[in-house]
């Protein structure tokens, strides 16, 4: 495979997750805004989840890359 799709996907969700949770921290005291989400700071929690998902994708992609390298390095025995 040419490009592991988990790489860009992981990066994107890490970035979006970090933006979202940072925004959640900054707006922590804005109770009026979070009335919409029933008082939960959804930005912080969902941001953390998205970042974790992205990180997991990156980890999987990295593991696959390491395995592919190892397979390529060991000569194939017929």
């Amino acid at each position: 495979m040419q490009l592991d799709v988990r790489l860009p996907m992981g990066m994107m969700f890490v970035i979006i997750g970090v933006i979202l949770s940072l925004y959640g921290l900054i707006t922590w005291s804005d109770a009026e805004m979070y009335q919409r989400s029933l008082g939960y700071n959804v930005n912080l929690w969902w941001g953390l989840f998205l970042a974790a998902f992205g990180a997991a994708m990156l980890l999987l992609a990295r593991r696959a890359a390491i395995r592919a390298k190892r397979d390529a390095a060991t000569p194939q025995t017929p």
């Binding site: 979006i16 979202l20 925004y23 959640g24 707006t27 805004m33 979070y34 919409r36 989400s37 029933l38 959804v42 930005n43 969902w46 941001g47 998205l50």
Partner: peptide
């Protein structure tokens, strides 16, 4: 519009 504050709304 009803449930998402800015940020989550963007998502």
């Amino acid at each position: 519009a009803r449930f998402c504050p800015s940020g989550l709304l963007g998502v």
